[in-house]
Amino acid sequence: MIRRLAPGAALSLVFVVAALLSYLWTPYAVDGMAIADRLKAPSGAHLLGTDHFGRDILSMLMVGARTSLAVALVAVGIGMGLGVPLGLAAAARHGGWLDEVIMRGNDLVFAFPSLVIAILITAIAGPSALNAIIAIGIFNVPVFARLTRGAALALWAREFIMAARVAGKGRVRISVEHILPNVTNLLIVQGTIQFSLGILAEAGLSYVGLGAQPPVPSWGRMLADAQTMVALAPHVALMPGLAIVFSVLGLNLLGDGLRDALDPKLREVRA
């Protein structure tokens, strides 16, 4: 069990620690330009090299990790905060008009190409990390609503819920006290997956200039800056991309590991 969780957890932890550490210490100041040292290849002085302003890439990646993690975390928070109550309400009122309205609303959001709408929102409301968060967060809502509703519907048919109803508990109380604790595992697993998708989405938005704005470093914009220099100094484009790949990979592996660890049924099938 631990063995399956370890690689993903370790990889994810590296990025969380790097982001937190950047508040206290980075090898160099991220706004420290040193034109004489521009586009240096990785070396002892600059472990991952320097960019076109002579800034230390490792330091920028560490600070950029903050942006990526913060945007993805809040976007998952929005998705869960709105999606889970909606899903619980739809399941509690299964077949009623509320269920119908919530699910149709869900379908509608799903029908929109998420990236296009994210671009629309950030473009109209102005490019910023906050608008990127909102744009990514909105599309997390139907994911969590649908997942919660599906799992909750199966639970509503169980005896212990029936017992709670007989004991006189209302739908809201049952949802909060009995349904919610039983879908938490699922939510955690989906949360890690949406988290990694959030990192990818944030990188895409800041690559096209609609995410975090300068001087806040972000992985996507580092890639956009690197594009014109890719022939001259490939490491400038390589490093931020690898940071994205490893953080997303780590979170996905963590999600898979958690699913196996938290869902005993799957474990039996695998064994």
Binding site: L200, A203, G204, L223, A237, G241, I244, V245, V248, N252
Partner: peptide, 12 residues
């Protein structure tokens, strides 16, 4: 493949 951002892959 899932973890690779397509615009970065494009640059490579």
């Amino acid at each position: 493949g899932i973890a690779v951002p397509n615009f970065w892959f494009a640059m490579l």
